[in-house]
């Protein structure tokens, strides 16, 4: 018996190792099975690691939190400025989009008007207005470069605007229908009788040389007659506002409202009776 004990004692490291390994294997082989509630020793061991570990973790998380908050505050100011700038850009962009959309609709209408007629037209934007006494004019953003020249009629889908009086390299001036110097040969849509529409200088048209014998009433539509070869035939000029038929003379006094609202003009068509050069 003692011999066995001595044998084991002499090889205690080997036997101790085997016992430890066997124990470790037994723990390991039962590893995934549900663990029973830890005993008192295990609880003490857990507490010895858990509380200092928790203290370190909380401290680190606290420090990290402070760091994050500081950098967050520093970043928030910069981010705020950046967001404000972005918002401003977006607002501008949105406004431009809306304007482009509206412009698109207007241009489409103009194009449809242009296509519905046989003549060639060049679209132009109104970039200036002038009203000096009874003289009305517009400035367009197209000039010689687009083939424009004095005398060309200018219209929109609503009706006649006027004619070009001066042409620059990239801009041109338009005398409006309502200008005192403007005179447009017209005919009445209803009875095809002819006259001349002159600007009165107060935003209205006076239709002259209209026979006293012709029947004309308020609301009748006046169109370009195409006489003199300046304006194409059939463009709306205005609507009769007032008719005064005197008991004497050859003609009657007629006043008309222009078909075009000049105060809202943004795009127009410059009409070519032939192809632009």
């Amino acid at each position: 018996m003692w011999k066995i004990w001595d044998f084991i004692k002499e090889r205690r490291k080997l036997f101790g190792g085997i016992v430890l390994l066997a124990w470790a294997f037994s723990l390991f082989s039962a590893g995934e099975s549900p663990r029973v509630s830890p005993g008192p020793l295990a609880k003490v061991l857990l507490a010895l690691v858990y509380y200092p570990g928790r203290t370190i973790t909380y401290t680190l998380e606290g420090l990290a939190g402070i760091g994050r908050s500081y950098f967050l505050l520093v970043g928030v100011e910069a981010e705020n400025q950046k967001l404000k700038q972005n918002l401003q850009k977006l607002e501008e962009s949105r406004f431009r989009c809306r304007e482009t959309q509206a412009e698109n609709v207007r241009l489409k209408t103009l194009m449809q008007y242009s296509q519905a007629n046989t003549y060639t037209a060049v679209p132009a934007q109104v970039i200036g207005r002038s009203q000096n006494g009874g003289y009305f004019s517009l400035t367009l953003n197209q000039g010689q470069r687009a083939g424009l020249r004095p005398g060309l009629p200018v219209a929109t889908s609503q009706g006649l605007v006027g004619r070009i009086s001066e042409v620059g390299f990239q801009e041109s001036k338009v005398i409006l229908l309502t200008d005192r110097n403007s005179a447009v040969p017209i005919l009445m849509e209803k009875n095809r009788s002819q006259g001349i529409a002159r600007g009165t200088g107060d935003g209205k048209l006076e239709i002259r040389y209209f026979s006293r014998l012709e029947d004309v009433g308020v609301g009748d539509l006046a169109l370009t007659s195409g006489m003199e070869g300046i304006y194409p035939k059939g463009i709306r000029v205005g609507q009769v506002l007032d008719v005064r038929r005197k008991n004497f003379g050859l003609f009657q006094d007629i006043w008309a409202e222009p078909s075009v609202d000049f105060s809202r003009l943004e795009e127009v068509l410059v009409i070519f009776m032939e192809e632009p050069k």
Binding site: L20, L21, W23, A24, F25, S26, L27, F28, S29, A30, G31, E32, R35, P38, A42, L45, L46, V49, Y50, G53
Partner: peptide
């Protein structure tokens, strides 16, 4: 290894055995 198993191991006994080996 046993303490580490108690504290953090997802497979009990793994750290004890590994440490010993």
């Amino acid at each position: 290894g046993y303490v580490l198993d108690l504290v953090s191991s997802s497979f009990f006994g793994l750290n004890s055995l590994l440490a010993l080996l």
